[in-house]
Structures are given as C-alpha cells and as structure tokens.
C-alpha cells in the first residue's frame, strides 16, 4: 500500500460523515474504485449508520416534563402569572381551545358522515396542531429528500413522493409519522415563510378528493399524485398553499 492510499483509507469515516471537502471527497471516490477494503468497509459503515439512525431509541420529553420546566422559570411578578403570559402562550392556549372545539365538532361530524372527507380534514388539522403545539413537528429532520423518503420505508403502507421545493420557496424540513385516524401515515413537513406545512399522504379508495377549505383560520388543500392523495395543512393562507401545491406538481413533473 502506498502512502497515498493509506491516507485515503483513513479518510473513509470522514467521507461517510460528509466531512471531506469536495476535492478530498472526489479524491476518495477515485481511490475507492481500486480499493476493495474501502468498498467493503464503506458498506459496513453505511449499514451501521442506517441501523443507528432508524433503530436507536429516541426518548422524548413528556408533557409533564415540559410543563414542569415552563412553570419552574422565574417570573417578573410571580403573583400575576396569568397577565404575564407571553403572547405565544396565549396563542397556544387559544389553539388548544380550538383543538378541543375541533375535536368536539369532529365527533358530531363522525355521526353525520362516518368516514367522510370532513372527518379526515378535522383529523389531520388536529394532528397538525398537536405536532406544532408540542414542538414535535418532525421525527426525521432533513432537507434532503433522499434521507426523508427512505426513513419512511416500511413504517407506513404508503410511500410518498418526497420533493425538494426549496427553490420555489418551500424548503423541506423533514418528515414524521402520524396517526390522524386509524393508520400510521407519512407526513412531509415543509416551511412556507414562517409557517409550517404538514403534508399528509394516504391511499384513496374511489375518486381522489381535491379542493381547498379553511377551518378556524387554518387552510387545508387536497390533491392527488400518482394514485396517492396528498393533503396539506397550514396556518399559511389558502393562496400560499395553492402556490405550494403548484410547486409540488411542477417538481413532480420534473422528476424522470
């Protein structure tokens, strides 16, 4: 082994970790073509990484802990906690109240139209609110669609198209799993300016639903793509969601 290849072999982990410069990375690519040891090692490294990233437990903060922390912070005037609630918290409380209202009205709708589109919309809105209120918007954080799509692999019955819409002003921030109704569904999470957009993906029976609606100030827009139904939920306005959907459709057409 010449000194040059020795250096290259040693760069393997930095290569896998994306820590090499573009030039170093290209040099390593070249080296790897002729190095069976590196080819074999890189596969082992990638398998280990995939295993760690999918199967390592991620214990989350309970609501009780969240509450304990927030209520233990010092206050300006301890006796007037309620008045001093920051705006965000008021908004959170208002939103929580509307979740309750939505859930209540959802229950009524269920009686009227079991399994209806209305029920679906109430469910995904409640799910979007739960995620944004708890701060747990994404299970896998990545702006790389090649990371997000495989992450869903095998976890849900539907495999969504994951598109990068950063150029259109809607950066992908990650994905999460959610159970708005009875099945675990993939949710793609994008940003639209300061707004979070949750895109729920499900298989449809019969005619795929489409169209937009507004519930309690939140916009919901549904469309279909390759036989799957996509529903985007956000506090962005419906014009912005429509722009998002146009960007999504355009990016889909651009795929090979």
């Amino acid at each position: 082994m010449t000194p040059a290849t020795l250096i290259a072999c040693e760069s393997l982990e930095a290569y896998v970790d994306g820590e090499l410069s573009a030039a170093e990375s290209a040099a390593f690519d070249k080296h790897m073509v002729g190095c069976a040891t590196c080819q074999q090692q890189i596969e082992r490294q990638l398998r280990l990484r995939a295993l760690l990233r999918t199967d390592l437990a991620r214990p989350t903060a309970s609501d009780a802990l969240r509450h304990r922390i927030l209520s233990s912070l010092p206050q300006d005037q301890p006796e007037s906690n309620v008045v001093n609630l920051p705006r965000r918290q008021w908004l959170a409380m208002a939103a929580a109240a509307s979740v309750a209202a939505i859930l209540a009205s959802g229950a009524t709708l269920y009686v009227l139209h079991p399994g209806s589109e209305d029920e679906w919309q109430e469910a995904i809105l409640a799910s979007h609110l739960r995620a944004t209120l708890s701060g747990h918007v994404i299970d896998v954080a990545s702006s790389d669609r090649h990371t997000v799509k495989p992450w869903f692999g095998g976890k849900t019955k539907v495999a969504p198209i994951v598109l990068d819409l950063a150029d259109a002003g809607f950066p992908l921030i990650g994905g999460r799993l959610d159970i708005p109704q009875k099945d675990a569904l993939p949710v793609l999470v994008y940003k639209a300016g300061r707004h979070v957009v949750s895109v729920f993906v499900r298989a449809t029976e019969g005619a795929p639903p489409s169209g937009s609606t507004t519930i309690n100030g939140f916009s919901i827009l549904s469309w279909s793509e390759d036989g799957l139904a996509y529903s985007a939920v956000s506090d962005a306005d419906s014009a912005e969601l429509q722009a998002f959907q146009r960007a999504f459709a355009a990016a889909r057409r651009a795929l090979p």
């Binding site: 199967d55 390592l56 437990a57 991620r58 214990p59 299970d139 095998g154 976890k155 799993l177």
Partner: peptide
C-alpha cells in the same frame, strides 16, 4: 436502558 423499546421509531407497523 428503560426507554429502549419505548420509542424506537414506529416498530408497531412493521
């Protein structure tokens, strides 16, 4: 670890 099986992401559906 006592959280081991708890939140390994979405095993139930496998």
């Amino acid at each position: 670890p006592d959280f081991e099986s708890e939140e390994a992401p979405a095993m139930a559906d496998d």
